[in-house]
Design a protein around this nucleic acid. Structure first.
Lengths: 200, 200
DNA sequence: TTACAAAGCAAACGATCGTTTGCTTTGTAA
DNA sequence: TTACAAAGCAAACGATCGTTTGCTTTGTAA
């Protein structure tokens, strides 16, 4: 085995994080096809060609944003359920974290998650497989959470998960910052399901 | 008032309907920005410029497809609830019709409805106002259906509607033709809500 | 202080985009 | 049979797209 090469250390003024942030913001708002490479680099005073030092293609850039989005929201949800034991409490906490990560736009953290929800893998054929894999990986969190619920016999847990996540994700289209908070919306949706499904 | 001009009658070989069909199909699958004018006319052996005899802009074409989509799914839902009296039965029938109109791809009727669900008004700024108006007009059907439900006091009817429609619309992303039918999915989602909300 | 890779500039590539302009074909009403 | 508008062709417009190529600047390890 050859000795490990001395790690090439990135420079401090590396603007790759800025590219990711701006790409996340624009992909979230305008979609993948509605955003040009020039749109992205314009805001950070870069030339279009320079982006290709960091990414081989526009689709590879999307894959990077997508990966970061899954990482962030997975972390938020995991942190939210870490302290809790009761299954319904855990699911509610997860839904609140999911929706806050998606809709809360302060510090632009929500942009990354919105890309995961909004951009269809089919929009970027060369990385579609990777995107689907990452989304599935995230949703597995919710498979487990729903699995742990004490439900009456005969209730299809897959339907429960799909209904809840679908309703949450769709809120992206009608949510307005001034009105009900993401936390309130998430709790309400869980409550609408809960008492019916709870077996006691 | 001048006498009405004799109506200019369109020709029988008018290919405008073909343009609408193909645009609906492609906008549904690839999105608005992911579809070019050339993509649309290619399938019907037309030249790109010829489209502009029928529509002033690509966005005006989208508006026409959108309007037809709302018209079709409104009609399907209205027909489905026409015979029924019981409020929960009416809501279920409406949800089944909504989802079948959205997911059933036989005779390509679903393409128009999918455009309504998939394309964001903001994607076409010059017609965004019209698109929002039409979508709201359609959703008013469901406002009334939920309004008629005999619910326990304190249940937020807006949340019930948003949760249900959100879950249904989101199914577009995970639905697979081989598995559960749109009818089954719609009924299951209504059932998950129903017993909890029903006041008896 | 120097060597060198990291980072990005500068300029352009061919392809494709939505749309326009002027002209021709063709169905239909009279 | 003819007049004419409906419908679309043919060809191009300027703008923008994602990407490449060759060169320069600059931070950092030695």
């Amino acid at each position: 085995m050859p000795p490990a090469r001395p790690a090439r250390v990135p420079r401090a003024d590396n603007r790759l994080p800025l590219i990711l942030d701006e790409a996340a913001r624009l992909f979230a708002v305008q979609g993948f096809h509605g955003t040009s490479v020039r749109d992205i680099v314009r805001a950070i005073d870069m030339l279009p060609g320079s982006l290709y030092y960091h990414f081989a293609t526009k689709e590879a850039l999307l894959a990077a944003v997508y990966a970061e989005g899954v990482r962030r929201i997975s972390e938020a949800v995991s942190a939210a359920i870490a302290g809790k034991r009761e299954p319904w409490e855990r699911l509610e906490a997860a839904c609140v974290a999911h929706l806050e990560g998606l809709l809360l736009s302060e510090n632009s953290a929500g942009d990354y998650a919105q890309v995961v929800i909004r951009v269809r893998p089919a929009d970027a054929p060369t990385v579609a497989g990777e995107l689907v894999r990452r989304r599935d990986e995230y949703e597995r969190l919710f498979v487990d959470l729903v699995q742990a619920l004490p439900l009456a016999r005969g209730v299809d847990r897959r339907s429960v998960r799909l209904m809840l996540l679908g309703a949450l994700n769709w809120s992206q289209t009608w949510y307005h910052p001034g009105r009900d908070s993401p936390r309130t919306i998430a709790r309400r949706f869980v409550a609408l399901l809960r008492s019916e499904l709870d077996q006691e």
